[in-house]
Amino acid sequence: MSEIIFELKDVWFSYLGKFSALCGVDLTIAKGQKICVIGANGSGKSTLLHILDGLIFVDYGSVKFLGKELKEKSFGDENFSKDFRRSVGLVFQNPDVQLFCPTVKEDILFGPLQLGIDKLEIESRFEKLVRFLDIRHLLDRSPHQLSVGEKRKVAVTSTLIMNPDVLILDEPTDGLDPLTTRHIIDLLLEENENGKTIITSTHDLHIVQEISDCVYVFSQEKKIISSGSPDKILEDTKLLQDNNLIHIHRHKHDQTTHIHPHQHLEHHS
C-alpha cells in the first residue's frame, strides 16, 4: 500500500458556525494518486480543498497529513508550516485571488521566494515552466491585462514552480477554451507521471476520466455520496443526474435527433 498523504475522518465544517459546508466526510488519499472531486455548485468541494491546503480548519473530525493531525496551531511551528507549504500547492478557483502581484513574473516567483528556495533552483524551474506553458510574452504584464485562460495558466504556473508533492486544483479548466484545457490536462498528467499526487475539483465531466484514478461525488447534503473508479461513476447516470452533474439534452448527430443525458462521453468519443 502506498504512503497515505491525507486521511480525513468524519470531517464537519461550517462557515460562521451556521452555514454547513461539509457534513461528515471520510476520505483517504495515497501518494501518487489522481483524485477527482465532483459535485454541483455549493456541494462543499472548494471547502474540502481549502481544508486539505491547511487554510481553514475543521469544526469536528480529524484531518491528517502524512500521519500528523492538521490543526491551526501546527502552522505556528515555522518549520512545519514551510514543509507543508512546500509539499502542498493549491490552484484557486478564481485566478484573480491568486494573482495579487503587480506583474506576472513577480506572481510566479512569489511562492518560491517566500519558501526560501535556492535562487538557481528557482531560475531553472521558472525557465522550464515558462517555456512549457509558452507564457514568456506575459511575464512583464500585469495580471489584470490577461485573459481568463492566460490568468489560469499563470495561476497554475505560480503553484507548479513551488514543485509541490501534492497538487490541488479547484476547477482548473473552468471557462477555458479546448486548447488551453488540453495544455493544463497534459501538464497535470505529466506531473502525476513524475510521482505527484493530483487532487482536482471539477464539474466538467469531460476531463474526469483522464485526470483521476478515483472519483468522489459530493451531494447537495455536503457529503460524499459515492466514490469509485471514473468508469464506474461516469456510467452511473442516475447518480450523476440526482446530483446535478448531468441533465437531459436534445441535439443532432448525423441528422438523427438524440435525447440523452448531457454527458457526452459515449456520443463524442
Partner: peptide
C-alpha cells in the same frame, strides 16, 4: 492565497 504559497 498568500498563505498557501508560503507567506508568513
Amino acid at each position: 492565497a498568500m498563505l498557501s504559497r508560503g507567506y508568513s
